[in-house]
Design a protein around this nucleic acid. Structure first.
Length: 198
DNA sequence: GTTAAGATCTGCT
DNA sequence: GCAGATCTTAACG
């Protein structure tokens, strides 16, 4: 069977608990097909954004045009534009209508590294290609077109490659880059990985 | 219609 | 290590 396994994304764990989903998404491989070529990378850093008691979450103040896809069914993408320059990719979690998501903060490049370098301009060292929310979107050519995209379908989808999922040393830390609710340890990383955003 | 702030990155000191 | 770039969104008048 092909590598695009919807069951591997398994709505079950995405649907239940956003924090749990953020933890389990670590180790999944994000794949991107395009006319230019194929790129992929392992998710090594995530952050959970909850709808309750979380002022930092875009959905905290209810549904708006910008975050509407955050209220959609789990397993879909929520892509937003920030600071005039950068896109950020989220995986929608929780039951549809709840408004929770997991931000993909960093990837470990696997395939298509030359293409990523081409997209990122200049000669980026490999450990700087996708080590941040804005960077990985640029390397994967992810734009607002993917807002609301089903992450089980081409040209952007998640894969479960078991080889990477045996023993993942997960560590939780405070979130980064936000001013609200920093006390919550809702950021999850693969400890020791050299492709983290910091 | 106008304004302030933002889940960031890059370049320069 | 720090300030600037740059634009979309949301809140207010």
């Amino acid at each position: 069977m092909n590598a695009i396994v919807r069951s591997s994304i398994n709505q079950a764990f995405l649907n239940s608990n956003t924090v749990e989903a953020a933890r389990k998404l670590l180790g999944y491989t994000l794949c991107r097909e395009s006319e230019e070529g194929f790129v992929s990378g392992i998710i090594v850093e995530t952050e959970a954004y909850l709808s309750k008691n979380d002022p930092a979450c875009h959905a905290a103040r209810g549904k708006t045009r910008r975050n509407q896809s955050m209220f959609g069914p789990p397993g879909f993408a929520y892509v937003y534009f920030i600071y005039g320059n950068h896109y950020c990719l989220n995986v929608v979690t929780g039951p549809a209508g709840k408004g929770e998501a997991v931000l993909i903060r960093a990837l470990e490049p696997v395939e298509g590294i030359p293409l990523m370098q081409k997209r990122r301009g200049k000669k980026c060292p490999v450990n700087n290609l996708t080590s941040g929310p804005g960077k990985l979107c640029q390397a994967f050519a992810i734009g607002k077109d993917f807002d609301g995209h089903d992450l089980a379908t081409k040209p952007l989808y998640l894969e479960n490659r078991n080889a990477f999922r045996k023993f993942i040393p997960v560590k939780s830390t405070p979130r980064i880059g936000i001013s609200e609710a920093r006390d919550k340890s809702l950021r999850f990383i693969i400890e020791g990985n050299q492709y983290l955003s910091r």
